[in-house]
Nucleic acid binder design. Structure first.
Length: 255
DNA sequence: AACCGAATCAACCGCCACGAT
DNA sequence: CATCGTGGCGGTTGATTCGGT
């Protein structure tokens, strides 16, 4: 037996919403709220629509403070940075862009941004680059790694949170006094990472060699610019191509 | 002006997570 | 613990619009 449908398909209207339907839905929610039950809402509101359709229409178009139209350069940058880090988790990306919906961002990425980034720039093969030793680890909460980030980064990381698959973030400082945040994780430690309100400008993925030194796998800029090829759009995809056990993820504020 | 392919984006579909029972 | 109902999410579709010839 199949799954029960969420509504009576034969009696619901599909396709574009009319202004009258929009007005009915908006008026009902303004008066009564969603009531925490989208499935029952269309019947109460006098709409011949599926509850899911009402929810989508409200979230994407009718709720207050929705922003439509041109994306700014800042928004482009945030989308690219987050996509390079977490992949196509549009709802998380949308949470970092006030007024934008996950659907809007998804469409924008698929129709414009992806082409802008991947369509113009030539692609080069994955390369491992040499490791400048310009940083000194000065944080006590990460005692298992001799940290030498792959390159120098001005600026200081801001807020973040991690899942249990990662170490606590460490602040790492360079010889010129600038800093970044670093996390380490093992290859088989499971799911992706999260960070909250990070507002970071760049990310660097390093593998930790047997000699304790890190080697740069890629930067967020490399991924966002498509320089690693479309098969490597997330950290998770990247690390599957490397054999070492421990990876270091660094986040940085500033160029 | 007409045609046609490309681009856009609103909406749908199906799956999964999670809370209630 | 198992089942069910619902919300939420990401992938995909298809109607409409745009732009080139």
């Amino acid at each position: 037996m199949g799954r029960a449908p969420c509504c009576d398909k034969a009696n619901v209207k599909k396709g574009p919403w009319s202004p009258e339907e929009d007005a009915k839905l908006k008026h009902f929610i303004d008066q009564h709220g969603t009531g925490g039950n989208w499935i029952a809402l269309p019947h109460k509101a006098g709409l011949r629509r599926c509850g899911k359709s009402c929810r989508l229409r409200w979230l994407n178009y009718l709720r207050p403070n929705i922003k439509h139209g041109q994306f700014s350069d800042d928004e482009d940058r945030i989308i690219c940075t987050l996509f390079a880090s977490i992949g196509s988790r549009w709802s998380i990306i949308a949470a970092n862009l006030p007024g934008r919906t996950d659907n809007d961002i998804k469409n924008y990425w698929n129709t414009k941004l992806k082409k802008k980034l991947f369509g113009i720039l030539p692609q080069r093969p994955l390369q491992i680059q040499p490791t400048p030793s310009t940083f000194v680890h000065n944080c006590s909460n990460n005692n298992n790694i001799n940290q030498t980030p792959a390159t120098s980064f001005p600026g200081l990381g801001t807020s973040y949170s991690t899942t249990s698959s990662l170490t606590a973030p460490s602040v790492v400082q360079s010889s010129d006094g600038s800093s970044c945040n670093q996390f380490s994780r093992s290859k088989d430690s499971g799911s992706d990472f999260n960070y909250g309100g990070g507002n970071m400008d760049s990310y660097f993925y390093n593998e930790l060699g047997d000699d304790g030194n890190q080697k740069l796998i890629a930067s967020s800029g490399d991924i966002a610019n498509g320089l690693l090829g479309s098969n490597y759009s997330t950290f998770e995809q990247l690390i599957t191509t490397h054999t070492c056990d421990t990876f270091i993820f660094s986040e940085h504020k500033g160029d």
